[in-house]
């Protein structure tokens, strides 16, 4: 593995506090994920691909914006792996790069309706933008 990729994976893992090696590959995270259908890569794959060093497809995938951070996978994992934290860490690696914000203020008028609470906007900006 080339050095920069190795460093990136190390960063992602350290920042998340997740140890992918704890995973016993039972798939309960993906068996419980409410956003499964919207994802190209699923929670157990995030853990497995980070463990095997295959991070590029995850960085490019829209899946990192589909996680709802509902923590169902975190709470129900029998091994305490916490996939959602790993997904968040990968997303941060992407949006912390200059010009990589997933959401910009210009996009907002198109997306909202009358009833939408402020909470939706602040949360989305916190998740998608740096």
């Amino acid at each position: 593995m080339e050095k920069s990729k190795e460093n990136l994976i190390q960063d992602v893992v350290r920042r998340s506090g997740v140890n992918p090696r704890k995973c016993m590959k039972c798939g309960k995270c993906s068996g419980t994920c409410p956003a499964y259908d919207e994802m190209e890569y699923h929670p157990h794959q995030f853990v497995y691909m980070i463990e095997t060093g295959d991070i590029e497809p995850l960085l490019k995938s829209k899946s990192i914006y589909k996680c709802l951070t509902c923590f169902a996978c975190v709470d129900r994992c029998p091994r305490g792996v916490e996939p959602a934290k790993l997904i968040e860490s990968i997303r941060l690696s992407v949006i912390r790069e200059q010009g990589n914000n997933h959401l910009t203020p210009q996009m907002i008028p198109e997306l909202i309706d009358e009833e939408m609470p402020q909470q939706a906007l602040v949360t989305a900006f916190r998740k998608y933008t740096k």
């Binding site: 039972c26 798939g27 309960k28 993906s30 068996g31 499964y36 794959q45 029998p78």
Partner: peptide, 25 residues
């Protein structure tokens, strides 16, 4: 694959689970 959630609906039980070999929920 492991079952992640079971929800009683009417007189049925809805089972949500992973199929790891098919990569499906």
């Amino acid at each position: 694959g492991m079952v992640g959630k079971i929800s009683p609906e009417g007189d049925k039980l809805m089972v949500r689970a992973s199929d790891l070999l098919a990569n499906k929920q």
